[in-house]
Design a binder for these strands. Structure first.
Lengths: 123, 123
DNA sequence: TAGGAACCTGACATTGACGTCAGAGGTAGC
DNA sequence: GCTACCTCTGACGTCAATGTCAGGTTCCTA
């Protein structure tokens, strides 16, 4: 498929896909005329990239670990980095859960101002 | 306390603290000579701000919701936004958990390349 | 009271992941 | 072959949260 189709299929912009290629994260064949051609696996890879981005992992780090993640095989040094990322992801999850608790407590107690008219009472 | 102490206490840079004030997120008293003075509650607020930042919430949105989070009281329109943020936080957590599973499967299967010598086998 | 550390404001620089635009060429239905 | 849409490269713009620097003031300790 061409880049536009991959973009709509994955919900990622054309610009972003070209950026991924620029960073070495996403490969493409080229047609006679120079247009990018993607296979079916490309969509999965794009979503994987997005997922790693969402975990706060930089494109350089993703580049390093991507083949390992895809194949499920990594050497010890890379493995150490993967473990580092793992623990940072765990930490992020914990922090988000804490944030969630705070938001919930606000939401739960918020009925108190139904009639106040001000968006937030003064702190 | 002065800004440097708050910075070391919270692990947030002096520049960031001034930025928070600029955005209206963090108030300070000023000494006779114009230096910022913070009370004890400031450290908690800074950590709360960081937490919300980490949840991907913009400074404008934080500004809007911060008094509510602090006081535990919000009006219906703000409440709706809080719910929106809540669900985005939930989604983030789910995505991170999925990422975690993938990282774990790589880490679990990675012994296979102990002797290979290459950081990552070709995809 | 001297001098270095900490603070002030203001402004420009940086980083990463894109957005956007220009100008040119490719593709596909009619 | 016309037309509308898609794609190409290259380059500059953006945005948010800082970093960093300059030039000056304030604080604290010996």
């Amino acid at each position: 498929m061409r880049i536009g189709e991959l973009a709509t299929k994955t919900g990622v912009s054309v610009r972003a896909l070209r950026y991924y290629e620029e960073q070495g994260l996403l490969a493409s064949e080229r047609s006679e005329s120079g247009q990018r051609q993607y296979g079916e696996k490309a969509a999965d890879r794009v979503q994987l990239i997005q997922q790693l981005y969402a975990a706060g992992i930089s494109s350089a780090a993703i580049l390093e670990m991507l083949p390992c993640v895809v194949t499920g095989v990594a050497s010890p040094p890379v493995l150490a980095k993967l473990r580092g990322h793992r623990s940072s992801v765990v930490k992020q999850i914990e922090e988000l859960q804490e944030t969630l608790r705070k938001l919930d407590s606000v939401i739960a107690g918020a009925h108190a101002s139904h009639a106040s008219g001000v968006p937030c009472p003064p702190a």
